[in-house]
Every structure is written in structure tokens, then in C-alpha cells.
Amino acid sequence: PGLPRTAPAGHAGPPKADPGPDGVVRHALTFTVKPGSEPEVARILSGYASPRAEVDERTRLRRTSLFMLGNRVVRAVEVIGDLGDALRHVAMQPEVRAVEEALNPHLEEARQLGDPQAARAFFAKAALPARHQAIASSPNTARLHRHAVLYPVRPGHGQAVAELLAEHDNLATADPTGPVAAATVFHREDVVVRLVDLRVPAEADPAAALGVADDRQAAALAGLLDLGPQGDLRTAPGLGAFLAARAMNPVTDRRSADPINN
């Protein structure tokens, strides 16, 4: 769902993305739905049948995680191999095409998937590239808690927020005993989403879930976000309140059953 039948980015071809430290390519798509349609959209997105993971001998879909906050949808995919091939493969599956058609009436921005130029334009705008990926050397993937946070970025500060979170994640994943096992910062313009795999539930360590290591980072991040008059990232209650407000709701999280991905 939310994947292109044709080239999804630009006019020349599929999106380009480099693999992370673990050899996995990560990419996300985001779009908004009409206010009031959120429950129906969540139902549609959580109910589809997973497409076949294997694309060809070198490309396979590894994991798909889908989140919502308010009327914004974020769909993150993990691919081994070629991202463009994987996206086209998924988009061709009948179950995914049915979901796309079911979503269309609920989208804030109408899309015409039957028109290649219109489809390319929609998915170019929907693309949310992985700007930074940090992976611990021993993430212990069997016991991780996956969370996503949508940051309320002040206009024009998306790049600075992404860079600050990347700085945090490099240090956090370097600590083999720390709570952060892996983190990906997705960013386009002023839309910034951080997908994080934690060794503890997010509520047990809001600072790690949000990408705040100390007062310096808290102050720097607060200056780039619209926290409101009561927002404070320097205190435990403030971090907890911010996490409760900006943590995205998980809709579905599906791994490939292929042993190579487990």
C-alpha cells in the first residue's frame, strides 16, 4: 500500500538509496489522509495480505513497518538488493493494488495511478528518504522494540533536526550496552521521522526513544521544534509528554519469513 506501479521518484527512474551499515536499504513513503478517515485508513492498511518477499535472486523485501500519527501515514521498508526493483515488485501484487484503490478516496492529495506522469509526481512527493542509518554491532534483533517519532519541525529546520538526530544515533549505537540498537532518520523538507529499535520499551527510556542524550542536545533540539509553551526536553516529565504526543501509532510491522532475514 502506498507504493508506485511506475517509477516512484523523479522522472528518470526508481529512487536511489544506499544500504546501511548492515547492508540493508531503507526507504519510506509518507502521505496524509482526510481528517476523520484515520480509523478506516488504519483498517485498510492493517488488513492487506503481505506480498511475496522474494523479488529475484538478489533482491528481497525484508521488513515493512507502517505507522500513523493524526492523519499522516508513514510506511518504512527494508530491502536487501535493489530498492527500485523491490518497490515495483510490491506495487504489481494484486493485494497491494487493491489496497491502493481502497485508499484513494481517503487521500488529501488525489492521485491518478493510471497516469504514469501523475503517479511519478505523487510518489516523488511522497518519498521520505533515509538520510542517516546507525546500527549497533550486535543489535540482538529478536528482542527489540520498534518505534517511530514524527517531529514537529519549525519551518525551514528539517535538515538541522535530521543532522542533530544523526549525531545522537552515531554515539548511541556505538555503546553496546545502551538502549538504542538501530535508528534511521527519514527526512524530506520539514518532515522528519526517526525509526528506532530499542532494547527497552520507549516508555522506559523516552530520551533514547526521542534521540536526546543530554541537556545540550535537548536545548539544541528544542530550538528547532515547535514544542509549545509548556514543552521541555530537559526533564523526565517533559520528555514523557513529548513522546506521548509525537510517537506514531504502529499499524503493522511485517518481516519476511525467509531465514536469510531473521
Rank of each mutant, 00 (worst) to 15 (best):
P14R: 13
A118R: 11
P105M: 12
M92A: 12
P155K: 11
L227M: 11
K16A: 12
A244E: 00
F122A: 13
L3K: 03
T177K: 15
P129D: 07
S46V: 09
R194I: 08
V24M: 14
V193L: 08
K125T: 03
A181L: 03
M248R: 04
E163K: 12
V55P: 07
S138M: 00
G36V: 07
G13W: 07
G178F: 11
A222S: 14
V212P: 06
P237W: 01
G70W: 06
A219T: 14
A247W: 06
A174L: 10
A136K: 06
P116M: 07
L165V: 05
P139V: 05
R188D: 13
H106F: 13
R26Q: 02
T173G: 01
N249P: 00
A183L: 07
H11W: 12
I80M: 04
R62A: 15
P229M: 07
A142L: 08
F186W: 00
A121N: 10
Q159A: 13
P152D: 05
A110D: 15
R5T: 02
R58A: 12
I260S: 10
V185M: 08
N104W: 10
A202N: 07
A208Q: 08
N140W: 10
L61E: 05
R26M: 03
A218D: 03
R146H: 09
I80Y: 01
Q117F: 11
R234H: 14
L225S: 07
D197N: 03
G228N: 08
R62S: 13
D56L: 14
L128S: 04
S50R: 12
Y151V: 09
G114M: 05
L171C: 05
A181T: 05
Q117N: 14
A241G: 06
A28P: 04
A172P: 06
G36K: 01
A134I: 04
V251Y: 00
S37G: 11
A166T: 05
L210P: 07
A121R: 11
D18H: 14
I44G: 08
A174P: 05
P206R: 00
E203A: 14
P201F: 11
V96W: 05
V153T: 04
F186L: 04
P39K: 06
H106S: 09
D56C: 13
I80L: 11
N140F: 11
A142S: 09
Q117P: 04
